[in-house]
């Protein structure tokens, strides 16, 4: 556990305040950790993923004796020390060659983890194509029905989205969309969510080998004129290209997950707008005032009471019974008014 620091000057106080929990959170900072042995492949994979993740990335260049699935206390410590909430641990062992562990933290505790094996890796430098600018937000593309049905792939999608794209932004410059990260899954042979495996770590090796491979591809985007407002998109490979196979995973603790999924209380303006429920004829303006629109039936101008004159009065012989009655009423009213005037 880290000691609690009392800031001694304004700069330190600002730095500590920046680490406080926020309602709308910043992008997740990722730490890239090397295990006791990382082969050339894992080193390169981590270097290139870090290039994609920059500037929210911290590299631990020294080796660390760490096994995230057995003991995650080091991860907890590093997360708190560096104010980071994602980890990519690279480790290559005889049993699990070229392994990567992607871990996600909540409140400096491990929320969930997923382990991959790198089957194939094509570096960025092998494509002589333009690269994206560091720090630009990628677009993400997921292609498989498993991302909606299978718990392992749902977790994978959530982890990768959190890794690359978790920051909530209110606007984006359309010219700055430069690259995409595409995640696809090999065809699944009779694997679906209903018969799917539980997310726990009690999975046997045959079950793991049944999980189809994951292809991570990175492309740059070219926008071509299409004659309409929306441009036509062309992709060119950028790299890195990764073929991953899923290995162990650790699902989130339900209590911790529930705490992590808590949303901030809605603002008054949003609540009054109806929170997605359509409320007709009501809107809330910038000042928080509720404004309504009222619709009235069309006015019948024939019955409009205009100025009363003697000449316009319906005579006793003219018109039907109804009009005479009306006339009587009017007469009474006028009498009353006269009386009031006189009194």
């Amino acid at each position: 556990m880290l000691r609690t620091i009392k800031p001694k000057n304004a700069r330190a106080k600002r730095a500590l305040d920046a680490r406080e929990p926020k309602e709308v959170e910043d992008a997740r900072t990722a730490i890239f950790v090397r295990g006791t042995h990382t082969g050339e492949v894992v080193n390169n994979v981590m270097k290139e993923l870090m290039a994609l993740k920059r500037p929210d990335a911290i590299s631990f260049s020294k080796k660390n004796a760490i096994r995230p699935f057995e003991d995650s206390s080091s991860l907890d410590f590093w997360a708190q020390k560096n104010d980071a909430s994602m980890f990519l641990v690279g480790q290559s062992t005889k049993k699990r060659p070229a392994g990567l562990v992607l871990a996600r933290m909540f409140d400096s505790k491990v929320l969930d983890m997923c382990e991959f094996g790198v089957d194939k890796f094509v570096s960025m430098s092998e494509f002589k194509t333009p690269k994206s600018t560091p720090g630009h937000k990628p677009m993400m593309h997921f292609a498989s029905e498993l991302f909606d049905t299978h718990p392992r792939y749902i977790q994978l999608k959530s982890l990768l989205m959190d890794f690359f794209n978790a920051e909530v932004i209110d606007s984006i410059c359309l010219g700055g969309l430069e690259h995409i990260i595409s995640v696809s899954v090999a065809p699944s042979s009779g694997l679906n969510g209903a018969t799917g495996l539980s997310l726990g770590d009690g999975q046997s090796s045959e079950d793991l080998s049944k999980l189809p491979k994951v292809y991570v591809r990175t492309y740059t985007v070219r926008m071509l004129a299409s004659g309409t407002r929306v441009p036509r998109v062309e992709l060119s490979p950028m790299g890195p290209f990764l073929d991953l196979s899923l290995r162990r995973s650790q699902a989130a603790d339900p209590d911790l997950w529930r705490a992590a999924m808590k949303r901030p209380k809605m603002k008054k303006q949003d609540v009054e707008k109806g929170l997605g429920k359509k409320r007709k004829n009501l809107e809330v303006d910038e000042l928080g005032d509720l404004r309504g629109r009222v619709h009235i039936a069309k006015q019948d101008l024939d019955k409009l009471q205009t100025r009363k004159m003697k000449g316009l009065k319906a005579g006793p012989g003219e018109g039907d019974g109804e009009s005479t009655e009306e006339g009587d009423g009017e007469d009474e009213g006028s009498k009353r008014r006269k009386r009031r005037k006189s009194s």
Binding site: K137, M139, M140, E145, F147, D148, S184, A186, V233, P237
Partner: peptide, 30 residues
């Protein structure tokens, strides 16, 4: 900025040319 394509994979084009297939599905999604 995320798009999810829940269509099942076309196994023929997947097995004939993997990279081309992945790029074309990604292009459609983007």
């Amino acid at each position: 900025l995320t798009v999810t394509d829940l269509n099942p994979i076309d196994e023929d084009s997947y097995s004939t040319n993997l990279e081309e297939y992945l790029q074309s599905t990604a292009r459609d999604g983007i």
